[in-house]
């Protein structure tokens, strides 16, 4: 479903990503764990075809992100951190607009809106303009917008940031339910508790490189630490110590 091979991204002399490789399959929540600036967003932007890799390759649902971007876009739902919405459109108008951009007919669109309404309890959001939404309401609509075409792959970038407890719970429950329906969810976060609760496997990213790919339990066991947070810090420390050891 998702195959990332030696992906790199450079901006002039600066290397944002270097030799990233991993695979993820349907029915899996794959976490991208890393501090701010680690390269998670750049990687998700490459997977969503918004950025082109400068080296390596990646395929989503069998389509290469660089060679077949339109095919990839038809199969992904993207939730980026900013929760940007068209303020002057109602929730329903937003969903209908994005359904049309995905080439869906009216019948299928209305059916999907009903399903998403039931899943996310959109209710009033469908009739109100997005400009008046709270953060939690915005996040619900952003999720519904990403799921309107029922994509097999969902890319979530820091999707829970700024959410209150209830909205965050809705998000986590939705991710779990999508996994149960054999969707692949790539979940980028720096919140350990979310990784522990949701992710089947994860890639720890730091400085644009993958430090480890494993399940949360494997990661803790490999590190010899007692929890994921300590295991994460140990990995980061090891990465920092390596160049120092090489260069003396």
């Amino acid at each position: 479903m998702l195959d990332v091979q030696h992906i790199g991204k450079r901006y002039g002399q600066h290397s944002a990503l270097e030799g990233i490789s991993f695979q993820a399959r349907s029915g899996e929540v794959f976490g991208l764990l890393g501090a701010n600036g680690a390269g998670k967003t750049t990687l998700l932007r490459i997977l969503s075809t918004l950025l082109r890799p400068t080296s390596g390759s990646a395929s989503v649902a069998g389509f290469d992100v660089a060679a077949r971007p339109q095919e990839v876009r038809a199969r992904i739902g993207l939730v980026s951190g900013g929760m940007g919405l068209h303020d002057r459109l109602t929730g329903a108008e937003t969903l209908r607009y994005f359904a049309a951009l995905h080439g869906m007919n009216k019948f299928r669109t209305e059916a999907r809106i009903e399903v998403l309404d039931a899943q996310l309890d959109l209710g009033e959001l469908l009739r109100r303009r997005a400009g008046s939404f709270s953060t939690g309401m915005k996040q619900k609509l952003v999720l519904a917008r990403a799921l309107i075409h029922d994509p097999p792959v969902l890319l979530l970038d820091e999707a829970s940031s700024g959410l209150d407890v209830l909205a965050r719970r809705t998000l986590l429950d939705l991710v779990t339910s999508l996994r149960n329906r054999e969707r692949l969810i790539v979940y980028s976060t720096h919140v350990m508790s979310e990784v522990e609760e949701l992710c089947d496997r994860l890639a720890v990213i730091s400085g644009g490189q993958v430090l480890s790919v494993a399940s949360p339990a494997e990661l803790v066991a490999q590190s010899g630490e007692r929890n994921l947070e300590r295991a994460f810090f140990k990995l980061l420390s090891a990465q920092k110590a390596l160049p120092e050891a090489i260069h003396g």
């Binding site: 993207l78 068209h86 080439g103």
Partner: peptide
């Protein structure tokens, strides 16, 4: 405006050319 609101990413991630 799309860029400022952050709606461009979602828009450009759709298959519409």
């Amino acid at each position: 405006g799309e860029r400022e609101r952050g709606t461009f990413e979602a828009l450009l991630a759709t298959p519409t050319p």
